[in-house]
Design a protein around this nucleic acid. Sequence first.
DNA 1: GTAGGGTTAG
Length: 696
Amino acid sequence: MFSRCCSKFPCPGGLQTNGERGLGIDASSYLALMKSVGDHGGVQVHAHAVKRGHDRDVYLRNAILSSYAKVGHLEDARRLFDEMPEKRTPADWNSMISGYWKWGLRERARELFNAMPGKNVISWTAMVAGSAKTGDLQGARKYFDEMPRRNVVSWNAMLSGYFQNGFQDEALKLFDEMVSSGFPPDDTTWVTVISSCTARGDASFATRLMERLGLDQEHIDLNYFVKTALLNMYAKCGNITKARWIFDDLGSRRSTVTWNAMISAYCKEGDLASARELFDMMPLLERDVVSWNSMICGYTQNGQSTLAIELFHQMVSVEAGVLMKPDEVTITSVLSACGHLGAMESGKWMVEYVNKHQIKLDLSGYNSMLFMYSRCGSMDEARRVFHKVMEVKDVVSYNTLITGLAAHGLGGEALQLLSEMKTRGIEPNRVTYIGVLTACSHAGLIEEGWRVFGSIREPAVDHYACMVDLLGRVGELKKAELLIREMPMEPHSGVYGSLLNACRIHRRVDLGEVAARKLFELEPHNSGNYVLLSNLYASVGSWGDVDRVRELMRGRGVKKTTALSWVEYNGRIHEFVAGDISHEQTNEIYRLLGDLETRMRRAGYMVDDSCSLRDVGQEEKEESVRVHSERLAICYALLVSEVGSAIRVVKNLRLCSDCHTAIKMISKLEGRKIIVRDNNRFHHFVEGKCSCNNYW
DNA sequence: GTAGGGTTAG
């Protein structure tokens, strides 16, 4: 706006020399103007001011220099800085130094700082803050220790440096030092101290501190920054009532951050309705990317992946009114939602979106992408991202890929990754070993499993559960039993669950009953355990016992879990339950199913469409002969998807063995690759064979 | 009258 004004209406020459009063705009008016237009506007004020000779005013020059530096026009800022060495003030040096820090040019910042004559407390503080923000805490501390004079801002810079980098204990220690050396904390100090306590999950510590220093938390004078930090502290420490009290108390002084903190507080509590209510109440212009991210992440983390994806589409749609650009946090969350759903089409669409809009993903973003691909059954893409795209990897990246490989039964590759991460100096953690042991288990790698188990410094109960699973799956039930007896801690439900599942696979009713009894004690309301036991009875034809288990469930009021299967097609999730007749293409689906079964029988396969492993969740016996959901889902996919493409089905409960056989046949008869995810396991059916071999 | 420190999301 200003540059256009200048080019269209060149200023009369006479006024250019009349620097002090040109057109009645003096230097201080320019300064006021700059304040109102912000840094981006400030850059545009420059040309205008130069024409009137105001660039010789040191304050205005500095303001302009600062604007250039802040928006990243460092060369322009430097030109101004170099122009008139005789008029240079410490403020110019300091603006230049923090500009360099802001844009990550640490060496330039240091050079300038070293060359600066008459460094003042602001210069030193800029060095402390700059180093801390780039993660160089030692450097920051060195400047902090060496600075000849400190003020409260210097202390705050160092404190926040510790906090931002996750060293909350150091921050609190420094705060102690600060108080004992006589520096009274200000609001900013309190914000950092309270936040540090929040990060440590210790609300009472903050409260005690504030009391000790005579700061009443309900004091009316606390500024909204402090109140928001307090709100956040109570929210994170589980006192949602107190958090809400502060939120309501702030009234019109609420900022975007206050709203966001309250929204994420509700999300953390799992109270999505209240979170959404606030989100919808929030003035449209107040909503920033963090508000959207908080709500989307809230959905993802509370198992509402569909809503998360829906909200993302709302966020980027034009109808939302205010254009909102998603960032890497948004993408991380939505990719994760796609992974949880096994929604490959949506996931791919997201990746395309990222490329199209040039959103730069960080490590978490790529980890999320890895997660999405491997949960959608596309290990090739997951490997490609991991090996070819990601430059930096952390323990989460390795864990994600290893867990994915484990789910796909790719044990050897998981083992390879374990040794690779060790050579690269990335320390495996509890999760890594769960993944690797699971991988061994699914691939039947018993020796490797023992070796890995033996290498864990302090095996946790989950690792024992994995070993029981491994031993159990390959049929070593005696050894599994022995391991349980010898483990140094109390076995949890996962341990007995593995044992019971192994008994189901190997039809060991006697031992299975023992495991089930333990499980019913530990978690009497988990319907999965009853289903496992019932399936065990069914596998040996003890229908009376199957009915007994069902009675037991009813007697204890255990809720049945609906077995859902879903297929993603054309950007929509199509959901099926056993015996489903609600889908718009129901008739075609059943016709195809009947046709397939006829062909299977003709090919000499006995396929029992009642799925003799009956689902104890069904109330009525007749209902248990209803066709299982995954068969319906697969038939639907066969109808709509392209010939040659793989069929992906997600099932939220375990695939029964009759369906497993049936799907093998379908893959052969139709010449299609079928990928089924049940819980965390993948079955790749190709030409009548399944990747799980016999270890499923 | 210029320059340094603050809270929220994965």
